[in-house]
Nucleic acid binder design. Sequence first.
DNA 1: TAGGCCATCTGGTCCT
DNA 2: AGGACCAGATGGCCTA
Length: 249
Amino acid sequence: MDSDTGSTCSRSSTPDLPMDSAVGGFFSEKMFQAYCGDEAGPIRPGRPRAEGPQAASSKNRNRGELSKENLQELRLKVNSRERKRMHDLNQAMDGLREVMPYAQGPSVRKLSKISTLLLARNYILMLSSSLEEMKKLVGDVYGASQSHPARPVVPQLPQMPLHPLAQSLHSLVGNGTAGGPSATQAPHSPPSAGYLGFHAPPPLPSLLKDPLHLTSSYRHFPGMPCPCALCQPLPATTAASLHSLSMGK
DNA sequence: TAGGCCATCTGGTCCT
DNA sequence: AGGACCAGATGGCCTA
């Protein structure tokens, strides 16, 4: 990369920053500038400017009246804002990754953005479905207690039909179409977008080989036996508990 | 080496 | 008018 100070921060816009460090939990612009060692990167040379019919907006007309210095100053300011915006977006993405039921750690490659979003969507769907099933089961237990008032009512969670429910949730998350060899793949690779996509296009074989496929309808990931809360002895449906489970923190 | 992923720059558009 | 948001373009890094 040529003389772009932004490149100084290449691959580091989502460093291992403490989420609670900066005001509002985000990496402040000043921090970022200090991190990058520059206020704003110079204009990247060699990039073709968009010229033609689109370049006739009022703002562009105004720019014609600006001096070169002012124009460059404005450009740097806008670039800096855009960088900050993207860094905030990445921070939010990191926050989302942290609560995803997926193995995390230094030896685990970070989920890509698209994978994070798709996994988050599936995770929300799974939790919603789990909540509905739980409501139904609680309703059943309550109804049983009404019909047998003499017997002590113990919500027999361990004896609950976990497996079918878990299976359904697994198929919800794992969409069993993702057949394919995988157990021999790298143990620390994140799930691919193809696998994670709930309505994703037909997954490419290369997109399916990352996660360990240990069951017929769900893929388990290293470091995390099963993200499905219903597979745990005690339901832990909150993201925090799942996070602690997966992180071992 | 090709492809995926990413950061950054940039201009256009929308919103306040 | 200025800022936020968006999408296209570009180039770097990394992995299979």
